[in-house]
């Protein structure tokens, strides 16, 4: 390379290579977030995995998230990070002889857990089967039924949501470990760690996970401000979400929203490790089964019949 500098319009005394290096460095510097107005900020970039953070770090992260969420949703959101209660493993029971397919659980869940209304995200799906036909094949079900009144004669209804498996295939396939099983049995997703590859959605045999294809749209009046970091806090575009057994309610001792709203009491919830709970009573006394038992996922969702 000759030390001569060719004549150039800028009359600059620079080699071409030096000039190009200067341009590249300048562009890189311009991308760095030095002002607060940047959408990208260092704290969220350097945030560690939830399971690796100490309680102090989690508190700081939550403060930042609460501030961001309040700005975003124009409402004071309170995010908690309650840990799992000791000696608790949540179990769920669903009475198929009582479910009338009214879908009240679906919409109670949507409201409680801040699911996007447009595009529509519903964690619970209610499937309708004709009595007497081959029904364990879930593809034979109808989920868009719209009769004037339910229950319809000769049909029965089976709601499906995340089964909170003891051996979850979704956790096994996650490339970033953004989803894991908590000690109380709930499979959770850290929305700040999820990269949105949807491998877990492909792995789930129950079709329980939902993806946010666009920024979630929640009417301000219906936003639930009581949230949990791993549960119903307002999500972002491009993350996967699913039923968390209302982690914000159950870790505070309350029933999940779907259990409370069911008008016929078809939904039962409790602690599998407590021998006096209603979930243990029905597992021991009723005709119980679980979906797709042959896949060895060990779901915690028990369907049963009382008649």
């Amino acid at each position: 390379m000759s030390k001569e500098i060719r004549k150039n319009p800028l009359e600059a005394n620079l080699h071409r290579r030096t000039f190009m290096k200067g341009i590249a460095a300048g562009l890189a510097g311009a991308v760095l977030p030095v002002s607060a107005a940047d959408a990208f900020n260092w704290d969220s970039f350097l945030q560690k995995h939830f399971k690796e953070m100490s309680d102090e770090e989690i508190k700081r992260v939550i403060e930042r998230l609460e501030k961001e969420a309040s700005l975003e949703w124009k409402k004071n959101i309170h995010i908690s990070a309650t840990k799992a209660l000791p000696n608790v493993k949540f179990g769920y029971g669903l009475d198929l002889s009582r479910c009338i397919g009214c879908r009240k659980c679906v919409y109670a869940c949507v409201e409680e857990n801040n699911q996007s209304r447009m595009p529509q995200v519903q964690w619970i799906t209610v499937l309708r089967f004709k009595k007497g036909e081959k029904w364990t094949d879930l593809e034979n079900s109808e989920k868009y039924y719209k009769p004037k009144e339910v229950p319809e004669k000769d049909f029965f209804y089976m709601p499906v949501q995340c089964q909170q498996c003891e051996n979850p295939p979704c956790v096994k396939v996650c490339p970033t470990k953004a989803t894991w099983k908590e000690p109380d049995g709930i499979v959770v997703v850290d929305y700040n760690w999820c990269i949105g590859c949807r491998y877990c959605m492909a792995a789930c045999p129950y079709g329980a996970r939902r993806f946010n294809w666009a920024k979630p749209n929640i009417p301000e009046k219906e936003l639930n401000p009581e949230a949990h970091y791993l549960g119903n806090r307002p999500r972002y575009k491009g993350v996967v979400e699913k039923c968390t057994f209302c982690i914000q309610r159950t870790r505070a001792g309350k029933y999940p929203a779907c259990v409370e709203v069911c008008p016929v009491g078809a939904r039962k919830f409790g602690n599998l490790l407590d021998p006096k709970s209603e979930i243990r009573y029905l597992i021991e006394n009723k005709r119980v089964f679980r979906l797709k038992e042959d896949l060895n996922t060990e779901p915690k969702f028990y369907y049963f019949f009382t008649t």
Binding site: G253, Y281, L282
Partner: peptide
């Protein structure tokens, strides 16, 4: 008997209280 055990009908409140 099922109602007394909590398996029949609607209940609200706390799962452990």
């Amino acid at each position: 008997r099922d109602w007394k055990a909590g398996v029949h009908g609607k209940r609200t409140g706390s799962w452990d209280g």
